[in-house]
Amino acid sequence: MVTNIGIVMVSHSKDIAKGLYDLILQVAPNVSITYVGGTVDGDIGTSFETVQQAIEENTCDQLFAFYDLGSAKMNLEMAAELSEKEIEIMDVSFIEGVYCTAALFEMNADLPAVINELEKLMIKR
């Protein structure tokens, strides 16, 4: 059984988000992953509404959220504050962080082990 924690990815670029999603799908086909890349108009950037959508569309009520750059984090924080879901925003390297989490979730690793791995990938302050 796969963990009941989902993954949300927020990127400034639709191609980065989609590319990372495709990558993760290889290792974690059973984890609930939603993503948003770029703005509503498909431009580079992040917007609150699309982040909110990615959070709500995820089938899990507990989420680990990952982002690429600072402004994505701010929109994530605002959406997290307004959401009923329990959302943990991870200040880790984007690709490695998502990949590692997804792989561990897929094999149903216990939470402390996942957190322990993520701590090694902390790069954002």
Binding site: S47, E77, M78
Partner: peptide, 15 residues
Amino acid sequence: WISGVGGASGPLYGT
């Protein structure tokens, strides 16, 4: 600002 602006300035000014 929060819903229409996005980026960093949306959350910052919005807040």
